[in-house]
């Protein structure tokens, strides 16, 4: 091991229990998991969740943590939001079968790059596609929880109004969290009274709802691979330096 590398304790699997679930959309739910030995995390980090079948077969998936640690009846809890993946091995179980009080194995926090530190002072641009909103919401919640005054802009692309995760909370925060702007792009169906047609995110959206490069914002882009590729290319084309654009792509992207 090279000098200068901090020694790290192994990140162990531990048993979490379901305290509560909240339906966010027809296909996404937030699970509140009690984790007795949770070491804390930064906004943007994720956990691995592992299921073991009676025959010993195991399947694990990564889920973004949706917000700060919350107090549960028996100790600290973390919230993860799970989007149902059609034919998935893990998400249908977590949404349809997994019951209150039951154990599940988790490990974390994981990920040391796609994180926002509340002591940062640069303006923040968040661009999320679909369930890519989850780690961005963790940043929005942490901003308020820590009293940060850093201006945030969220641009959130969804297929239809029914697919908006955290919709009520985002409306409330856009009103109450001073310095937070929220804008939407609808790709299939827009709400009534929406000006403009449904469309995929494009240059005009990113230019209108993002910070100009002169302000040297920190930008976080999260969503399906094609979405992230498109948005990151647009940001670079608008003059944002690559090193200021942090991305997290869902799905096989190797």
């Amino acid at each position: 091991m090279a000098t200068g590398t901090p020694a790290r304790a192994p990140i162990r699997w531990q048993v979490a229990r379901l305290v509560e679930r909240r339906v966010e959309t027809p296909s996404a739910q937030t699970l509140v998991l009690e984790v007795p030995d949770w070491p804390g995390h930064l906004p943007g980090q994720h956990v691995d969740v592992r299921l073991t079948a009676p025959d010993g077969y195991q399947a694990a998936r990564s889920y973004s943590i949706a917000g700060p640690v919350v107090d549960g009846p028996g100790g600290p809890c973390i919230e993860v939001t799970v989007q149902r993946v059609h034919d998935g091995e893990v998400s249908p179980y977590l949404i349809d079968v997994y019951g209150a009080g039951e154990p599940v194995e988790i490990r974390g926090p994981l990920g040391g790059w796609f994180i926002w530190r509340p002591e940062e002072t640069a303006p923040v641009q968040l661009v999320g596609g679909g369930s890519g909103i989850v780690p961005l919401m963790a940043m929005i919640r942490a901003r308020r929880a820590t009293g940060s005054k850093v201006p945030f802009r969220l641009l959130y692309s969804v297929r239809t109004p029914d697919d908006v995760i955290y919709g009520d909370e985002l409306r409330r925060r856009a009103r109450d969290d001073f310095g937070l702007d929220v804008a939407y792009v609808y790709t299939r169906e827009a709400p009534e009274g929406w000006r403009g047609e449904p469309h995929r995110i494009g240059l005009a959206d990113v230019n209108t709802h993002g910070w100009p490069p002169d302000l040297e914002p920190l930008t976080y882009v999260c969503g399906p691979t094609g979405f992230v590729e498109t948005v990151a290319d647009l940001l670079v084309g608008l003059g944002h330096p690559s090193r200021r654009v942090k991305t997290e792509r869902f799905g096989p992207t190797g």
């Binding site: 990564s62 790059w113 796609f114 590729e229 990151a232 290319d233 940001l235 670079v236 690559s242 090193r243 654009v245 942090k246 991305t247 997290e248 792509r249 869902f250 992207t253 190797g254």
Partner: peptide
């Protein structure tokens, strides 16, 4: 998830 930023050209 292993690409941490924009794709270089």
């Amino acid at each position: 998830m292993l690409s941490a930023g924009p794709t270089p050209r």
